[in-house]
Simulated scan of single mutants.
Amino acid sequence: MKSVDNLLIPVRSFVLLALFITGFNSCMKPGIDKKKVVYVNSYHRGFPPSDQITEGVYEKLPADSFEILAYFMDTKRNPSEEYIKGRTAGILDSIMKEDPDILIVSDDNALKYLVVPNFQDNPMPIVFCGVNWTTDQYDLSGCNITGILELLPVTEMVNTLKPYYPEMKKLLVLNENTTTSRKTRPLLDDLLGDIGMEVTQELVDDFASWESVFINGNENFDVIYLQTRGAIKGWDHDEALKIIDQHIKVPLVTCEDFMMPYAVFGLTQVSKEQGMVAAEKAKKILRGTSPQDIPVSKNQMSNIWINTRLAEKIGFNPDEEILNKAKMVD
């Protein structure tokens, strides 16, 4: 008669063999087939709208299902044609080597320098976001593309202020000097002119120029629209606050939340929405829908902001309805 120990030997061997086979099979199983996404941002990490758009893309394309390769063109801090074309060539080379399932691009320079010259008659699907107002000046006829435009609520912002400043007529736009600001200049002239404003636009390259225009603007205009400042060389946050405190006489307004430390009132677009919508369009394409069957959309989200400290300095006292909706900065 066999002992119990002898009977257990083949059982143990069978169990060990089964565990080995199971482990081997699990190692041999392919992982989840992640979709490869290349994301190209026109600007740099640390620039608030870029960070917010990027956050939206990553939030909607989780790492367990998508492999995202991100590239930043850094064209606000390096606006020369030579730099932009060199940086674009390097990113394009990486895209061709990676051969992604889809390309997402953010803001005008990525569209202008990367997509338009290099993806005509190319089947790679593309989704753009953060492109201001319109794509009419870009030849996208041969591109497999859709996206979301960024429209700033500038007329709504000015109209919200008019009841508090009924004599408001002369408006100064104080902005950085970039591809996007030069593109939007005639659009702002038309939009603000249509609501009865007399518009002057100053596009500056450096902080000293910004200071000079700002001081002059408070003496000669009824309202100043502070558009953005990411490409203004030598920008000094603390010094800007001091200049504003010393010279503010008129409402300072903006459509960008990161400009609220310098503005009295803001009706701002939500940059993260751009990345979220672009990612959702990308997922739809990756499930089989053609980009041509996905209409180009426009942003819908906005926030009201009030800088309580600066509002007090110029005596801006909005009504209860605005106060109840507003986010506060001091």
Rank of each mutant, 00 (worst) to 15 (best):
K2Y: 14
V4W: 13
P10G: 07
F14M: 13
V15M: 12
L16D: 08
L16S: 12
F20P: 05
N25Q: 14
M28Q: 14
G31T: 12
D33K: 15
D33Y: 13
V38I: 15
V40A: 09
S42A: 14
R45N: 13
Q52Y: 14
T54C: 10
V57S: 09
Y58D: 12
P62F: 11
S65I: 06
R77T: 06
Y83V: 09
K85C: 10
G86R: 08
G86D: 10
R87I: 02
A89S: 14
I91T: 03
I91E: 00
L92Q: 06
D93R: 15
P100T: 05
P100N: 09
D107G: 05
L111H: 09
Y113C: 03
V115Y: 04
V115W: 08
N122G: 07
M124N: 05
M124R: 13
P125M: 13
I126K: 10
C129R: 02
L140V: 12
N144Y: 07
G147Q: 05
I148H: 04
M157F: 06
L161D: 02
K162W: 01
K162S: 02
P163H: 11
Y164N: 04
Y164V: 01
E167A: 09
M168W: 00
L171D: 00
N175W: 02
N175L: 07
E176N: 04
R182S: 10
L191S: 14
L192D: 03
G193C: 06
V199N: 02
T200C: 03
V204D: 04
D205L: 09
D206I: 09
D206M: 04
S209Y: 04
S212A: 15
I215E: 01
I215Y: 03
N216C: 07
G217Q: 01
E219T: 08
F221M: 02
Y225P: 01
R229P: 01
W235E: 07
D236N: 14
H237C: 09
L241A: 14
I244D: 02
Q246T: 10
H247Y: 14
K249C: 04
P251C: 02
P251G: 01
P251R: 01
V253S: 02
V253P: 00
E256P: 04
M259K: 08
P261H: 10
Y262W: 08
Y262D: 10
F265L: 13
T268C: 15
T268D: 11
K272W: 08
M276K: 15
M276D: 06
V277N: 03
A278F: 09
I285R: 06
S290N: 15
S290V: 10
N299K: 09
Q300P: 01
S302V: 03
W305E: 00
W305N: 00
A311Q: 00
N317F: 05
E320I: 12
L323V: 09
L323F: 04
A326M: 10
